[in-house]
């Protein structure tokens, strides 16, 4: 699907109601914030997220995306926390700085929290069409105009990048030099942003008219070509997930207070 991470399929994960998957994503976010240490976080990732991605037939794209996103975090957090968190187990010396075991563990723990939160979001994006998610949210009370903004930004943003490229090429054709140092490059933004912003403003008026021509602001109930399958079991599961999230947050607060 153009401009999205969605991988089409007919697995059980794909067929779940978008709000059920959204509730799971929030649960993984709560896991990321509340689980006490690296071991718990990695265990949750391996026991919950990896099998779920396999259930959805998404194991490869899921692990690949996780790897691409998490690697820079692992490297940067391990270095920063490893060298600057005080500890008693020196592992490595570099130019007067000491990489400690405690620091490295702290860095990896933060990275695994990010992995857990991002993994949940990735699983949602890989298995759910954005328009299905927005439809589910609008039926739950999200304003239609907000859902429209989210959906159009997914598809129209790449078009602005294409237009910026066209403008840049047009400016180059008129002698604009782009292979210059960083300060001169910043100055290049002016001839690029002017036409881009102005043409976008003109587009907005025409786009608004096109939407009006298609009854976008017509009052009354709107329907959808897309069918959302839900069940009492899933409805119940969403309440269960919400209660579990509240319990985890409560447990985390109790732990913090008692320690």
């Amino acid at each position: 699907m153009h401009g999205t991470l969605f991988v089409s399929g007919n697995s059980g994960l794909h067929r779940l109601h978008p709000l059920t998957k959204l509730a799971l994503t929030f649960l993984f976010l709560v896991f990321a914030a509340t689980l006490p240490n690296l071991l718990w976080l990695l265990a949750a990732f391996v026991i919950l997220l990896v099998p779920m991605s396999a259930w959805g037939g998404l194991l490869r794209p899921f692990l690949r995306s996780c790897l691409v996103v998490i690697t820079p975090f692992v490297i940067s957090l391990s270095i920063i926390q490893g060298f600057f968190t005080p500890g008693e187990t020196p592992l490595f010396h570099l130019a007067g700085f000491v990489l400690t075991g405690e620091g490295l563990l702290a860095g990896l723990t933060v990275a695994s929290r990010i992995l857990m939160a991002l993994g949940g979001a990735l699983l949602l994006m890989l298995s759910t069409r954005p328009d299905m998610l927005m439809l589910a949210l609008t039926r739950s009370g999200l304003p239609g105009s907000l859902a429209y903004v989210v959906l159009t930004s997914i598809q129209i943003f790449p078009r602005f990048q294409e237009r910026a490229q066209v403008i840049l090429e047009a400016q180059q054709a008129r002698g604009l030099e782009i292979k210059v140092n960083i300060f001169k490059r910043l100055r290049l933004l002016v001839p690029l942003m002017g036409p881009l912003v102005l043409s976008s403003i003109v587009d907005v008026e025409e786009r608004a008219m096109a939407l009006e021509a298609r009854a976008f602001s017509r009052p009354g109930r709107k329907t959808s070509l897309l069918a959302l399958a839900d069940s009492p079991g899933q409805h119940l599961a969403r309440w269960g997930l919400l209660l579990l999230m509240l319990a985890l947050i409560g447990w985390s607060i109790w732990r913090a207070i008692s320690s």
Binding site: M1, H2, T4, R129, P130, D131, A147, Y148, L151, T152, Q155, I156, R159, D203, E206, R207, A210, L211, A213, R214, A215, F216, R218, G220, R221, K222, T223, S224, L225, L226, A227
Partner: peptide, 28 residues
């Protein structure tokens, strides 16, 4: 301008054509 008339909120031509009908509140 044909580009500006594409709603941007639908992912296939079929769904794009349905967009106005959805706004009119017609049955599926």
């Amino acid at each position: 301008n044909s580009f500006n008339q594409i709603s941007g909120a639908r992912f296939t031509v079929r769904e794009e054509i349905a967009f106005g009908l959805e706004n009119l509140g017609l049955k599926r």
